[in-house]
Amino acid sequence: MEKILVCIKRVIDYNVKIRIKPDESGVITDGVKMSINPFDEIALEEALRIKESGNANEVIIVSIGPDDTQQQLRTGLAMGADRAIHIEHPTPLEPIQVAKLLSRIVEQEQPELILMGKQAIDDDANQTGQMLAQIFSYPQATFASKITLTGNTLEVVREVDQGLEILDVDLPAIVTVDLRLNEPRYVKLPDIMKAKKKPLEVLDPVSLDVSLDPSIKVLNVSAPPPRQSGVMLEDASQLVSSLKEKGLLND
């Protein structure tokens, strides 16, 4: 195929323990390490492997976010993407808006395959890929843990609640990827230097003609109720008595 488009999101690094703002308006991001959403990184790795196996000519990455998002796009270029598109927008958007902005890029670039993570680890929405697929009535395969390309068809193994489902989808298609698909490569220093010279186009969302009026308002972000601290017991007899007391074991 000619092109693969990979959609990536800048999120708080998955190793960071998040902290909630004292006024409960959101999560603290100032001075916090940011990264490519780990599922999107897996999507990019898969695109690069398809290209390296000779089955694609170009891997394009796209991201929507504040100006700092270019750090993550540069990381993606260092991993091996050929060029990057940054749709600059300072505040979080709803997935339907993200899907519509991305649809403009899909119209421009006409990729045969679009890859992204099954969800972003910040809002955990798990919507954008499926919405983008519906906008073009493209096939989708979500929760992908294995992808095999044969001619114009992708066979995708999906990790669903009941086990592993196998779907065949015709290209062009959208695949959202799960954790087990691959292990992303580490970026090497020379590649970081090379990435600085790769093309990175910045777009103003206004030029893409998509309504960005919010329809969902976040009233408050709070910490989940903490669990009560428990007791330590010595052995199985004590456990049996304790569970019986709580009505969790029958006499």
Partner: peptide, 9 residues
Amino acid sequence: VYAGNAIET
């Protein structure tokens, strides 16, 4: 959100 480490209203 954040895998249940925060709750949005």
